[in-house]
Simulated assay, not measured.
Amino acid sequence: MSVVFVHQGPGLTQESYEEAVRRLTGRSRMESPDDWPVPGLLVHVTGQGEHGFRIVDVWESEEAAGRFFEAVAPILDEVGIKNDVESYPAHTFVR
């Protein structure tokens, strides 16, 4: 079952996100699911909202998301992202 993750909170800014992407991939931006270090990403969206910068990911499973978070956690610590992550099973997912 696909799972939705919403990231936001202190330390998560467009600049810190872009720095994390550079450290993770060596690129300035993510453009394809193939850019991720693990398979399973279905959707990745970022943007500035009323309450700060936000990342929304949809993963094919909790296990896939877990593998990604294991890979990215040290980088998030390095760039100072200490964000809250809300997650929930997707009720409906349409491609």
Results as ranks from 00 to 15, higher is better:
80 G>W: 01
52 G>S: 08
94 V>C: 06
52 G>T: 11
30 M>Q: 05
94 V>P: 02
38 V>L: 05
11 G>P: 10
27 R>H: 06
50 E>T: 09
8 Q>I: 00
2 S>Y: 04
29 R>Y: 15
74 P>L: 06
34 D>Y: 09
1 M>I: 04
56 V>T: 15
49 G>H: 01
46 T>M: 09
54 R>S: 13
9 G>H: 12
34 D>L: 15
84 D>F: 04
8 Q>N: 08
70 E>P: 10
55 I>P: 05
13 T>D: 10
56 V>R: 05
68 F>K: 03
74 P>F: 10
5 F>T: 11
52 G>F: 03
68 F>W: 12
22 R>W: 02
19 E>Y: 00
92 T>D: 09
36 W>F: 15
76 L>G: 01
37 P>W: 04
38 V>Q: 01
6 V>N: 08
30 M>S: 07
18 E>F: 06
20 A>W: 00
40 G>D: 00
35 D>A: 12
87 S>G: 02
17 Y>F: 13
16 S>N: 08
34 D>K: 14
25 T>G: 03
90 A>Q: 08
40 G>F: 00
22 R>K: 12
50 E>Y: 07
76 L>K: 00
27 R>G: 01
60 E>Y: 10
25 T>E: 11
1 M>K: 07
59 W>S: 07
79 V>A: 01
60 E>T: 12
43 V>T: 12
70 E>Q: 15
80 G>Y: 04
93 F>K: 09
83 N>I: 05
42 L>W: 06
2 S>E: 09
32 S>H: 14
89 P>C: 01
69 F>Q: 09
71 A>D: 11
86 E>V: 14
33 P>F: 11
80 G>N: 13
35 D>T: 14
32 S>P: 06
91 H>F: 14
69 F>Y: 08
16 S>F: 01
43 V>P: 04
33 P>L: 08
11 G>M: 06
28 S>I: 03
10 P>G: 14
4 V>F: 11
5 F>S: 14
34 D>W: 05
62 E>F: 03
2 S>M: 05
78 E>Y: 00
77 D>G: 04
60 E>W: 02
34 D>A: 13
5 F>W: 06
42 L>A: 09
13 T>V: 07
40 G>L: 03
67 R>P: 02
26 G>N: 11
15 E>D: 10
84 D>Y: 07
77 D>R: 15
32 S>R: 13
49 G>W: 11
45 V>C: 11
45 V>P: 03
83 N>R: 13
82 K>I: 08
30 M>C: 06
44 H>G: 06
75 I>Q: 01
75 I>R: 00
85 V>G: 05
56 V>L: 15
87 S>D: 10
40 G>T: 06
12 L>D: 05
37 P>K: 07
78 E>S: 03
54 R>T: 15
39 P>R: 12
86 E>G: 07
49 G>Y: 07
83 N>S: 15
2 S>A: 15
17 Y>A: 03
35 D>F: 13
55 I>Y: 02
22 R>C: 00
57 D>N: 12
60 E>K: 13
50 E>C: 08
72 V>R: 08
55 I>F: 09
49 G>T: 15
21 V>M: 11
78 E>W: 00
44 H>D: 03
42 L>E: 02
50 E>R: 09
47 G>H: 04
77 D>E: 15
41 L>H: 09
28 S>M: 03
46 T>S: 09
41 L>I: 12
55 I>A: 13
60 E>L: 06
77 D>C: 06
30 M>D: 00
85 V>A: 05
91 H>V: 14
95 R>S: 13
86 E>C: 06
